[in-house]
Amino acid sequence: MVEERVHISEKERFPDRGQKMRRRYTTGIMVIWLRELKRFWRDTPRRIGAFFQPIIYLFLLGTGLQSAFKVFGSGTTVKYVTFMFPGILGMTVLFTSMFSAISILWDREFGFLKEVLVSPVPRSSVAIGKIFGGATTAVMQAAVFMILMFIPSIYGFSLSTLTKAILLLPVAFLLALGLTSLGVAIAARMESFEGFPIVMNFILLPLFFLSGAMFPLQGLPEWLEILTKANPLSYGVDLLRGIALKGVNLSSAQASLAGKIPGEVLSKIPPDVLQKIKASAPQVPKLQSQIYPAWLDVVVMVGFVVVMMAIAVRQFSKQD
């Protein structure tokens, strides 16, 4: 009996199988995405924590490192918080994106993952739903943080700041998609709940420190420069900073050195001595808002999203 039934062709048996699969696919993505949002919204401590963490970084570290930053930039025209803001924005996206994947472990721990895995929706759609859900929450978090942009000492309350904020959102989303995928790829096959934060920090902190979020990626030793170039987050932060610092005057160290000496003193110095002074002064590269071309940033990020998403979906579908 069973044998007979198997020999019936697939088309005869399921005339609308393709259509049904597509329907299952879209439902899967939608439902999982909605659930992620709902859970995020309910988890008030997580929301509050995720909101205050970047603020602590921005104000404590930002103010503390202000004087150190003067060596690099002028310090008089651009403030370290202004420079650092896009980096902290990138950090917010990085942390919320990667940690949103922890919900997979949570679901496995409390059994809900089984309900999802045994349901008729394809696993790949579940993974994609998770990724989009995590990325959406990360961008919402970033958007809340971006309200601080309007503070006068950062970018000021103006139309240009609003334009910047609007431009930053899609970049943050692209970055979030790639990073959430990375998180999902790690969490998908992870058995132990305790291991996740350890592995995460092991990956997260180097990504963060090498991204240019805290310091400009200029004048670095070669080995460090190679690492920063290999870090996909660098390109995200680069583009974020390019947008955020557009129109902000970044005067060079040399200019400020010259500006500090009054003109009449300067004219009395013989030209050959002046030459010597200039040569002995530390050669600091001009601070740039964006070190890579914008197209390269976008290409690298899109590539990162595609590759990470493919890995995440594959890892998630493979589990039992």
Binding site: T27, G28, M30, V31, R35, K38, R39, R42, D43, D107, F110, G111, F112, L113, K114, E115, V116, S119, P120, V121
Partner: peptide, 18 residues
């Protein structure tokens, strides 16, 4: 295998959609 952060109703709703 329930989502304990959702209500009973929401758990059923999720199932109904899926």
């Amino acid at each position: 295998s329930l989502d304990d952060r959702l209500t009973g109703w929401e758990n059923l709703e999720f199932h109904a959609y899926v």
